[in-house]
């Protein structure tokens, strides 16, 4: 009994009335509005903000965060969290780069991190699902293990001399950088899949109410493992995009990456309590962060104040969302 079309599963987006539909995508509209407003205001101050290079940089620069946030959104929607994703991406990027410089076929250097991501996170999911350990505990532990382990093994030696045809993030298709393609296509696929597939609804059901989902015949444990495995695959893709952005890989854990990914998911409207949210929101949030970072430089905001402005903007987005929800009630 794996399918989730049983009647007791809480109904999701397809059956909603128009008003509720706007509610379901409200956060996406707010984010889209914020991005547009930012572009308008900043380009008014400095028209170069709208230069093709800058726009392409804003969309491509945080694409790996958006991709990682897709997996993170699934995890959070299913009622869990993963604070180890930054460390995992660091480890997977290092594996990928090491394979690439040691003469393995390029496709293997792209594929292995995705597979390792799946295996590692399936293990994490199994610990959470079958041994009933809270996800924050397992992933807090994994964060230490992966971070310490990576430095023990590599001593932080940089990986240089990467072959040119390995640098997938620097490829362009129709003039658009490949990370943007990855971000857009994966987001669209997952958004569609989450809404219309049985398993997509299963994820919402588990996050919404575990016991109800269980009663409805959903194999909660198995589904949790699958969700984490999918999350691992996205971390793998994100790691490859991350590793191939430049011609050198630092082989350490990127600082605070997990916070950025989680923030993108929750600002994107994924409820930390599980059960609601879409991956479109998290991708928009990742783009918004890149746009904010870029616009602060364009607006000459003193870098000393940069972080407070970022924090304030996150807070405002969240408060606006709360106000909207209250209004709908």
């Amino acid at each position: 009994m794996m399918t989730a079309s049983s009647p007791a599963v809480p109904r999701t987006a397809p059956a909603m009335r128009p008003m509720k539909r706007i509610a379901a995508y409200g956060q996406e509209f707010i984010l889209l509005g914020a991005i547009v407003a930012l572009f308008v205001v900043v380009s008014f101050v400095n028209p170069r903000f709208l230069g093709a290079n800058n726009i392409s940089n804003i969309f491509a620069g945080n694409a790996y965060i958006a991709v990682a946030a897709i997996g993170m959104s699934l995890v959070i929607i299913s009622g869990h969290i993963d604070v180890a994703v930054g460390s995992l991406i660091g480890v997977l990027a290092t594996i990928s780069g090491t394979l690439a410089v040691n003469g393995y076929p390029i496709w293997l250097a792209w594929l292995v991190p995705v597979l390792v991501g799946i295996v590692v996170n399936a293990g994490v999911g199994a610990l959470i699902a079958y041994l009933r350990i809270p996800s924050i505990v397992v992933t807090l532990g994994m964060l230490s293990i992966l971070k310490g382990g990576l430095i023990s093994v590599t001593a932080g030696a940089w990986i240089t001399n990467l072959p040119a045809d390995y640098l997938i993030a620097q490829f362009r298709l129709f003039g658009i950088p490949s990370p943007v393609w990855f971000m857009v296509i994966l987001t669209a696929l997952v958004a569609f899949w989450m809404r219309y597939s049985g398993f997509g609804r299963t994820i919402y059901a588990i996050g919404g109410n575990v016991e109800a989902a269980r009663v409805a015949g959903i194999q909660v444990e198995r589904s949790t493992v699958i969700v984490f495995a999918i999350h691992g695959a996205f971390a793998g893709i994100a790691a490859v995009l991350f590793a191939t952005q430049l011609q050198v890989i630092q082989s350490t854990v990127p600082p605070n990456l997990e916070l950025t990914v989680i923030t993108a998911s929750v600002v994107g409207g994924v409820s930390i309590l599980g059960g609601t949210g879409t991956v479109i929101g998290s991708t928009l949030a990742a783009i918004l962060f890149a746009a904010i970072a870029s616009s602060l430089i364009f607006l000459n905001v003193s870098a000393y104040w940069l972080r407070s402005v970022q924090g304030l903007l996150i807070l405002i987005t969240v408060l606006a969302d709360m106000a909207r929800r209250r209004r709908l009630r």
Partner: peptide, 23 residues
């Protein structure tokens, strides 16, 4: 007051307070 989940609220103030310290 605003019913913001603690994780998000303090994630935002994590950035905000650190930013104030820097500023």
């Amino acid at each position: 007051r605003f019913k913001v989940p603690p994780l998000i609220a303090t994630l935002a103030t994590l950035a905000l307070y650190r930013g104030l310290a820097e500023g």
